[in-house]
Design a binder for these strands. Structure first.
Length: 415
DNA sequence: GTTCCACAGGAACAGAAGGTCA
DNA sequence: TGACCTTCTGTTCCTGTGGAAC
């Protein structure tokens, strides 16, 4: 026997809990899928494809619904000889500009030996390459842009739907499917983009707890052996998902993590306690991921706030965080940022859910300002920060100091 | 109803880094 | 090798905001 041994105690098919799993039926999305199907119908009729815009919160079935219908569309289109359908799905997370989207699309249509770099070319050159690739592919091409709100300029959203009208394409027929979690994204589009991208708009509402329970039951039936889930586990996962804005993905992640923990602990069943532990593990991972994406200054800003929190000085306003942050930056031997930039880091941390902000207004006496608090467990934050603060030489073990109910004088003496 | 306060946040810009191409 | 490109991180300047004080 080798080092690894197949474990079959808990899972029948763990992949059934993954985001990319395709169930036979999508629960609770009948109305939306009917509208979506109607919007895709022109492809089968051999007509110009519609541009479709889907919006709704995270984990409400937009991407799953798209995969489900696109799979059926491909299968059905294959039955007609005069339809040549290509679908390119692109997640725009991490792609912030039309330029990056265009280079990525060019590379998707090219073979591995002929890829282009993601910088360096003039924008017009990249678009020319894209039109060449799309035309040589030909037929009907659907480009699915998931998390389309990550694109900060809308040039590509204007260029792609109008490529044929602008005579950039001669043979290919292009349709765009834009998927967004951001309700304000559509409103902020320029009118010319809105009119072309939003030909068909479909909103996906949040799931309620009952719908989440049905989704989890559907997946759990495939994923787990019979009797593995204790009573109330699915309801608890659904309740957490419903609390966090009706997010099915979060509920499924939670159930899978609980299953993984049960497997690691070599238990036969999944209990409520394991679900709670799994939630803690997932939250820890989310903090670590959020913090790892920050710059060194971002780390020092959150570090300053955590130390103030440990001294019982939160909620604390921006101007009172600044001296602490400046102090740490100087100790680290780097120039502190200007207040404007520090505010950006605070805003970013707030958006990640690591800290929270409350807007206050004292009118003529004190004006408008924000007060910040630490939203997540300080120990988890410090554990994620430890490498950075060690690197800048503030002290060697922040976790130890936090255990000792640290004060600023501790920090100063430690450095 | 108007004024005032503190600061949030948008916009324009700078400069370094990392890339392509002739 | 140098011109030219985008991206990223930062600075500077400015306008907008909303409630207390007048």
């Amino acid at each position: 026997m080798g080092i690894f041994e197949r474990d079959t105690e808990i899972y029948l098919d763990r992949d059934a809990l993954r985001e990319d799993y395709q169930p036979e039926n999508l629960v609770g999305r009948d109305t939306e899928l009917d509208r979506y199907k109607a919007a895709l119908q022109p492809v089968i009729n051999g007509e110009q494809p519609n541009n479709i815009f889907l919006y709704g919160k995270t984990g409400v079935g937009k991407t799953a619904g798209t995969r489900y219908l696109i799979d059926h569309l491909k299968a059905d289109a294959a039955q007609y000889e005069d339809i040549d359908l290509t679908v390119e799905m692109l997640n725009c997370d991490g792609l912030s500009s039309s330029y990056q989207i265009a280079t990525r699309l060019v590379n998707e249509f090219r073979n591995e030996t002929n890829q282009i770099s993601t910088t360096g070319y003039p924008r017009a050159t990249v678009y020319d390459m894209l039109w060449t690739e799309l035309d040589s592919c030909g037929g009907t091409i659907y480009i699915v842009l998931d998390e389309v709100d990550h694109i900060q300029d809308d040039s590509i959203l204007y260029q792609l739907p109008r490529a044929r009208a602008n005579e950039n394409l001669s043979s290919a027929k292009i349709g765009i499917i834009g998927i967004s979690n951001d309700f304000s994204f559509r409103d902020n589009l320029s009118p010319k983009v809105k009119s072309s991208l939003c030909e068909e708009e479909i909103q996906f509402p949040a799931y309620d707890a009952n719908e989440l329970i049905k989704i989890l039951e559907q997946r759990a039936e495939v994923a787990f052996h019979e009797g593995v889930l204790e009573d109330g586990v699915i309801e608890l996962c659904a309740a957490y998902g419903a609390k966090d804005a009706g997010d099915a993905r979060q509920s499924l992640d939670l159930l899978m993590k609980a299953g993984d923990l049960a497997r690691d602990k070599e238990t036969d069943t999944i209990s409520d306690d394991l679900v709670r532990e799994a939630r803690d593990v997932l939250e820890r991972g989310r903090i670590r991921e959020g913090i790892s994406g920050l710059t060194q200054h971002g780390h020092l800003v959150v570090y300053a706030l955590v130390t103030l929190d440990q001294e019982g000085k939160t909620p604390v306003r921006t101007r009172d965080i600044r001296p602490r942050y400046t102090n740490f930056a100087e100790k680290a031997g780097i120039d502190p940022l200007v207040p404007r930039r520090m505010r950006d880091h605070l805003g970013e941390l707030s958006m990640l859910g690591i800290i929270s902000a409350i807007e206050r207004n004292e009118g003529r006496r004190g004006g408008t300002y924000r007060e910040y608090s630490v939203e997540m467990d300080p120990k988890m934050i410090l554990s994620a920060l430890e490498d950075t603060v060690d690197d800048v030489g503030i002290h060697t073990s922040v976790a130890d100091l936090i255990d000792r109910d640290v004060t600023l004088s501790d920090f100063e003496s430690a450095s």
